[in-house]
Every structure is written in structure tokens, then in C-alpha cells.
Amino acid sequence: MIRTCWELGKLPEFAGLKLWKWAYMLGFRGHFSTKSRCYPVTLGALRDARRAWRTEQARTHAGLPESDPTTTLVVGHWAYQGSGYSPGAVVLAAGVWHRRELERQFIAEGGC
């Protein structure tokens, strides 16, 4: 494929594609995109567009009015959701506490 790019790149009708310049990218096993500023669309621009689209989708689904950038959303309703850890967080917190307790015991017994 690299040799074909070189050969096609020599032809006048494909000169504008600059295939010779990109021929060795065919063997590149990395990510398909780059953070080069030469590309017209950056990954950041794609993330921003996706975020705006998802936000608009959620707004429409919730039946909220069009958002105005000059206004501030004020939430006037608070609800008690509970206190303490969730059942899954209890297990994680207990594991962290146990590991730290073992480290303290190890150091107290003259460990490194």
C-alpha cells in the first residue's frame, strides 16, 4: 500500500492529494486522529458539539423552555435524598479502611 501511494503520488492527476506525504501513515498503529492544529475539526470541537447536542436533547425531553444565555437558572426546590454511604460505597469504604488498618499494624510492628 505504501509503494502504491508513492506510485500514485507521482501521477499528475493525484499530485494534489500528496499521497507520498501520507504513505507511511498506513503502517501507523496508533489512534486514527491527531491533536494537530492543521485539521479543520479538532477533538475538542467535536466534544463541544456533542455536549451542546446532548444538552439540547435533554432540555427538549424534559420539556424545558429555550435557554437564554443572559439568564441564570435558579433551582427553588430542594429534596432530602438521604445521608451516609450508598450500599456499594459502604463496601468500598470498608475495603479502604481495612487496607489502611493493615498498613498501620504493619508499621507498628516494625515493618518498612
Rank of each mutant, 00 (worst) to 15 (best):
M1C: 15
M1F: 12
M1H: 06
M1V: 13
I2F: 04
I2Y: 02
C5Q: 02
E7I: 00
E7F: 07
G9W: 03
K10C: 13
L11A: 14
F14H: 06
F14K: 03
G16R: 04
G16I: 14
L17C: 06
K18F: 08
W20T: 01
W20M: 09
K21N: 12
W22F: 14
A23K: 01
A23D: 01
A23I: 03
A23C: 07
Y24D: 05
Y24T: 07
M25W: 02
M25D: 08
L26W: 03
L26N: 05
G27V: 12
R29K: 15
R29S: 00
G30T: 00
G30M: 02
G30Q: 02
H31F: 15
F32M: 15
F32A: 14
F32W: 15
S36H: 05
S36D: 12
V41W: 06
L43S: 12
G44W: 00
A45R: 12
A45Y: 00
L46Y: 04
R47N: 13
D48F: 00
A49N: 12
R50H: 10
R51Q: 14
A52H: 07
R54S: 13
R54N: 10
T55Y: 13
T55P: 07
Q57T: 14
Q57R: 15
A58Y: 00
R59P: 05
T60L: 13
T60M: 04
A62I: 14
A62W: 01
G63Y: 01
G63P: 06
P65T: 15
D68M: 02
P69S: 06
P69I: 05
P69W: 01
P69E: 01
P69Y: 03
T70H: 09
T71P: 05
T72D: 08
T72N: 00
L73C: 04
V74W: 02
V75A: 06
G76Q: 07
G76P: 02
H77L: 06
W78G: 03
Y80M: 02
Q81I: 15
G82F: 05
G82P: 05
S83M: 10
G84D: 02
Y85P: 09
P87M: 03
G88E: 08
G88W: 05
V90Q: 12
V90L: 08
V91R: 07
L92W: 08
A93L: 06
A93C: 04
A93Y: 09
G95R: 07
V96E: 13
V96I: 13
V96Y: 06
V96M: 07
R99H: 10
E101K: 12
E101T: 10
L102M: 11
Q105W: 08
F106W: 09
I107V: 13
E109H: 10
E109K: 11
G111R: 02
G111T: 14
